[in-house]
């Protein structure tokens, strides 16, 4: 009865207490404000920055072409690297020890080699063989064995043509990225509850269908954040293409202007701004990918559900 009367009476007066003061926060904010002011002052007053020169030159045609090359290289190297990583991760988890061992050796080797060293090596593969042929393995030896001369090759590629410039850079970066992605994908696959695979196989799904439809989509949630890191690292590592060399790339182009005009600092700052802008672009892409693959893991209402709820609400008001 007592409970009934309290719930029926007016609610108690709202609390209006004097808030606790935080002087430490004000001091910290003041210190940071002063530091920012000093930094801005330096940017404005130091004549070495040559802002107008920088803005005039950082959007010149060769720089824009370099930015495009850098972005295309980043995307292609990542796409190939991710595909390679998925294949290597599945190999690594194979029950066949030779297959799994081969994947382990690949990952070990390409993670151990600095990218700049690898790029330099790939760029010079033309010196190892003049042509690279596709055909049957040990064809000459086998033909010899049966008393014939000749070979069984159907495609010959000139080593000095493939292992140069853009292609060489792409091969080097993608091979290296495959090793890192293999570990990321493997962690993603192993993070999925084994009960999911069991449920899939209990429904009669084959191993590959279960991997493609059930395990990998769930692994993506774990795979995407570190892959975003990898993509941004790749964007920055395209500046290593100097080792090939690839000259139509962003950093090379900006530095070329800098050393030609002796305006080193403005062009270095231009480089910083360009990479920061491109990385931000990639981070936006990552945000949308993460949203796409978090379906079923947040409390977020989906489009179909909202439509259903609105239909219900409209129905109930009439």
């Amino acid at each position: 009865m007592a409970a009934d009367t309290t719930t029926r009476s007016a609610p108690p007066e709202e609390i209006r207490a004097v808030p606790v003061r935080h002087p430490g926060r004000w001091v910290a904010a003041a210190v940071i404000a002063v530091l920012v002011a000093m930094f801005v002052h330096m940017l404005v007053t130091n004549p070495v920055f040559q802002w107008s020169f920088m803005f005039d030159n950082m959007f010149s045609a060769p720089v824009l072409r370099g930015a495009r090359t850098t972005l295309v290289m980043t995307v292609l190297a990542m796409v190939i690297g991710v595909l390679l990583g998925v294949v290597l991760a599945v190999m690594r988890l194979s029950p066949n020890p030779v297959v799994s061992g081969a994947a382990w050796v690949y990952v070990w080797f390409f993670r151990a080699i600095p990218r700049i060293v690898l790029l330099f090596f790939v760029a010079n593969l033309g010196a190892l063989y003049a042509t690279y042929d596709l055909g049957f393995p040990f064809d000459r030896q086998v033909m010899d064995l049966f008393g014939f001369t000749g070979d069984l090759r159907f495609l010959g590629l000139n080593g000095n043509q493939i292992f140069t410039g853009f292609t060489a850079g792409l091969i080097g970066l993608a091979l290296s990225e495959g090793a890192y992605m293999a570990e990321i994908v493997r962690a993603g696959i192993q993070s999925v509850d084994p009960g999911q695979t069991e449920a899939a196989s209990a429904l009669g799904m084959s191993r590959s269908t279960a991997m493609r439809r059930i395990v990998l989509p769930q692994a993506m949630r774990v795979i995407i954040p570190p892959t975003g890191n990898e993509t941004i690292a790749m964007l920055k590592d395209t500046s290593l293409l100097i080792a090939v060399p690839v000259t139509i790339e962003l950093n090379f182009q900006l530095r070329a202007i800098g050393s030609r005009t002796f305006q080193i600092i403005p062009m270095a700052v231009a480089s910083i701004l360009w990479y920061a802008a491109l990385a931000s672009l990639l981070m936006i892409g990552q945000h949308f990918l993460e949203k796409r693959f978090s379906r079923g893991f947040g409390a977020r209402e989906t489009r179909a559900q909202r439509a259903a709820r609105e239909a219900r609400e409209v129905g109930s008001t009439h």
Binding site: G195, Q196, E198, A199, G296, F297, A304
Partner: peptide
């Protein structure tokens, strides 16, 4: 049918 359901969480 499993004790812990094992529904596919990424599907409706």
């Amino acid at each position: 049918v499993f004790q812990r359901f094992h529904l596919f969480p990424h599907m409706t």
